[in-house]
Design a protein around this nucleic acid. Structure first.
Length: 273
DNA sequence: TGCCAGGCTTCAC
DNA sequence: GTGAAGCATGGC
């Protein structure tokens, strides 16, 4: 166990911000996270203190980078002009969101699955996929499963994947898995591409269009300039910005701003004045 | 029960 | 280049 004090860190906001699908709330202050091939329990103790169920070495090696704890997110919120009432409220509500540094492969598949699904349905599909084809991990009495490897998914049939509630996306997932497993799509090499080249490379994968490519960039490659436009964001832009949102006002970090918008639109607008 | 979901592909035009 | 249809399935 390791206790740490963290600013701008909100487990609930991160868990519900639509960037990760393997956070499970164990009680009102505790989450179980499956990531990086391992299982972590984090408990909020109040007043910015958190209990991580791991040793200091694992915290430094795995979780500090995963939660992007060396970045000061208040710098992004300070760039929001006070006259933008919507974003000001969104940032206040979502203060504590961080852009997790998740695995590119897992994000590639997860966001292919995400199209035309709501978040509970995405979580379920990812859970079934992991239980069936992922490695057993953890030490608890209840088994947990890592996200399946490219090789593990590439070895399945389309029917196997359809049976995980993937629907028509099964063919896309299988094709993407085969591309990665064969080396045709080299995710490690793609880390070195600039944003535009990375986006274009992702668009060559079947089932990946502009929105999913931006999600993979933002959540899998930590390209925080990427600004995914889904039905929620488009609705906000129509309702709050007369159809035109000035992304260029947030150069290099529009993706962070987008997360505050998304989270507030989904969960905040009915709870704050 | 019907509508909608962190969209994409295909095919007219 | 633009627009509409079709796609599978689960959540609410």
């Amino acid at each position: 166990m390791i206790e740490v004090r963290l600013d701008n860190f909100d487990l609930l906001a991160i868990a519900e911000s639509g960037q990760c699908f393997r956070f499970e709330g164990l009680d009102e202050s505790t989450y179980e996270v499956i990531a990086q091939g391992t299982v972590l329990t984090v408990k909020a103790l109040g007043e910015g203190r958190f209990l991580f169920a791991c040793d200091e070495r694992e915290y430094e090696r795995v979780w500090r980078p995963y939660f992007d704890l060396d970045t000061d997110y208040s710098q992004y919120i300070r760039c929001v002009p006070a006259e933008d009432a919507f974003l000001s409220k969104a940032c206040a509500f979502g203060n504590g969101i961080r852009i997790l540094r998740q695995d590119p492969w897992e994000m590639l598949i997860t966001f292919i699955i995400s199209q035309q699904k709501n978040i509970p349905a995405i979580k379920k599909a990812v859970a079934v996929l992991s239980e069936r084809f992922g490695e057993s991990i953890g030490t608890g009495d209840v088994r947990r499963y890592a996200f399946p490897t490219p090789k593990a998914l590439a070895a399945r049939t389309e029917a196997d994947l359809r049976d995980c509630a993937l629907g028509y996306r099964a063919a896309y997932v299988l094709a993407a898995a085969k591309m990665v497993a064969s080396g045709e799509l080299d995710l490690a090499h793609m880390e070195s591409l600039d944003d535009e080249a990375l986006h274009n490379r992702l668009l060559t994968v079947p089932g990946i269009g502009p929105k999913v490519a931006n999600c993979v960039m933002l959540f899998g490659f930590h390209r925080i300039a990427a600004f995914p436009r889904d039905v929620w964001i488009n609705r906000i832009i129509e309702q709050e910005y007369q159809g035109c949102f000035a992304v260029e006002r947030y150069p290099g970090f529009a993706g962070v701003i987008q997360q505050y918008m998304f989270y507030y639109a989904r969960l905040g607008k009915d709870r704050t004045p």
